[in-house]
Design a protein around this nucleic acid. Structure first.
Lengths: 153, 153
DNA sequence: TATGAAACCTGATATCT
DNA sequence: AGATATCAGGTTTCATA
């Protein structure tokens, strides 16, 4: 699916506020309500618009700890890589899991309620049983920016 | 503000789908529409619920490149740290910027349309003028998981 | 003081031109 | 693609415990 200027405008707005009324959106992009509605439906159907989510303040909600974790696996064959990935997908403390190029195999973003629970997490998950050779944690002291928005157009 | 069981239930649901109708939500948490609406309003007012956003497929939308960037500054006094942070906030390619403990000063998550534009970004932003001593990029080859949801309760 | 029920009114959806 | 009609859903008010 090819995105035209109207699509990218709509996506830019919706990435900032998923709750904009269609009338308002239509006004902002200089199109009709019906057109906007159709475009959004298409973008959803094609999988470009994934879903609408509510963002919460992680500190206020009792999850003050964020860690960037670099992981090196013992063996890197496809089956074991896939196994590690599904393990990470199943762990709800793991916010993000990327396979990376370079000195590590994976880069994770992990949240926790406390250092104790993070410690428990690492002991439980980063084991040789799970094919993990070693891992390194980098702890966030302060979040200066967190955006889900990707700039378009 | 203290979160009770109803609040955490509501937050858990809204983090997965910000567009759930109030009636449906009310049914799921066994409360009335009015109560759910009130709780959501309070959560918004208190800043725990930050906002509702649409998530897009970054690859499909022309932003296939994601990099984790570790940054070491030249000097670390408060003013210069703050300066670097506001610089990052102003850069729309920077999705996340965390001040971290350990061998680096900052950890960034950066998206780009291509390696060329990423290169251009680094040349423009990671300069000694901006107090950057050195930086290291770790490129994502594949995203196995990306969640905005933090588990509650 | 917080809740649930119901009226009301705004906005999303579908159809037609 | 734009306009209109219909209907679902959000908002407000009121009664209640």
């Amino acid at each position: 699916m090819e995105l035209d200027r109207l699509d990218t405008q709509i996506l830019n707005i919706l990435q900032d506020d998923a709750g904009v009324p269609l009338r308002t959106l239509a006004g902002m992009v200089h199109a009709s309500v019906a057109t906007c509605q159709r475009r959004i439906a298409q973008l959803r159907a094609s999988g470009i618009l994934i879903k609408d989510v509510a963002l919460v303040d992680r500190v206020r909600v009792g999850r003050p700890l964020t860690a960037f974790v670099s992981v090196v696996l013992d063996q890197q064959n496809t089956a074991l890589l896939k196994m590690f990935e599904s393990l990470m997908r199943a762990e709800e403390d793991v916010m993000a899991c990327y396979e990376v190029a370079g000195e590590f195999d994976f880069m994770l973003v992990v949240t926790a309620a406390s250092m104790e629970s993070y410690h428990e997490f690492t002991r439980r998950v980063f084991t040789s049983n799970n094919n993990v050779r070693n891992y390194k944690s980098l702890f966030a002291m302060n979040c200066a920016k967190f955006e889900t928005r990707v700039p378009l157009g």
